[in-house]
Amino acid sequence: MNPPLTEVEVRILGSLLEKEVTTPDNYPLSLNALLAACNQTTNREPVMRLDEDALVPATVALRRRGLLRQIQRAGSRVTKFEHRLDEELRLVRPELAVLGVLMLRGPQTPGELYARTERLHPFADLADLENLLESLITREPEPLVARLARRPGQKEVRYAHLLGGEPAQPDASAEAEEGTLPTRRADPGDDRVGALERTVDELRAEVAALRADLDAFRAQFQ
């Protein structure tokens, strides 16, 4: 994509892609709900701490490029936002699911993508997901996904989106040094904690959206 999207623009679009599926009753998102979605601490890498001063200019830039639509329904003072990636890039739901997870979580292996796209779009199996990745790599007129160089000590390759430009390739020496560090054994409780944190973040986004709608409703009678 030329020019490449900024990190904030990528986070906005990724968050909208996610919330369109996970919280459809509150989609499109108000500015407050969008801000909360961008600043989630779960399902985000890296975690961001954005404010309105960073968010608003990015939404304006995305609107000018046709990737974001601003909506204000009749009788409401609340402005809401929805992505237009499906229209502008002619993408279908499975492609949007993969891109959304890559935009929110960074480079990932097929196995990681298969697990993390489950709530956005369930793939039949890993081969189904890998076939879609290949189609995004060879897509015309320009690819949307790239295959990264294999990391030292890793059997699986990782994939990254190209909406923000060419992804940084891993540094072999740094990765090798990192690979010598002891790793922590996964705790089964982590999955339960992660699920609870995701639920809390989604509830916060819903509350933020409802609060904004309520404030706008009250403003009509002042």
Rank of each mutant, 00 (worst) to 15 (best):
M1S: 12
T6C: 05
T6A: 03
V8G: 04
E9H: 01
E9I: 01
E9D: 00
R11F: 05
G14D: 01
E18Y: 15
E20L: 06
P24T: 09
Y27Q: 00
S30M: 01
L35P: 03
A37P: 03
C38L: 06
C38D: 02
N39R: 05
T42D: 08
N43I: 10
R44G: 02
R44E: 01
V47Y: 07
M48G: 00
R49Y: 09
L50K: 07
D53A: 14
T59V: 11
A61M: 02
R64G: 15
R65Y: 03
R69V: 12
R73C: 04
G75V: 10
G75F: 08
S76C: 10
L85Q: 06
L89E: 02
V92I: 15
V92A: 15
L96I: 12
L96N: 07
L102D: 05
Q108G: 02
P110V: 02
P110T: 04
A115I: 08
R116E: 13
L120D: 04
H121D: 02
H121K: 11
P122E: 09
A124I: 07
E130L: 10
I137Q: 06
I137G: 03
T138V: 03
E140K: 08
P141I: 06
E142W: 09
R147I: 00
L148E: 11
P152T: 02
P152R: 06
R158P: 00
A160S: 06
A160I: 03
L163I: 01
G165M: 10
Q169T: 02
D171E: 14
D171R: 14
A172M: 10
A176N: 00
E178G: 14
L181Y: 14
P182F: 15
R184H: 07
V193S: 10
R198F: 13
V200W: 13
V200S: 05
L203T: 12
E206N: 07
R211T: 04
L214C: 09
D215P: 00
F217L: 14
A219K: 11
Q220Y: 06
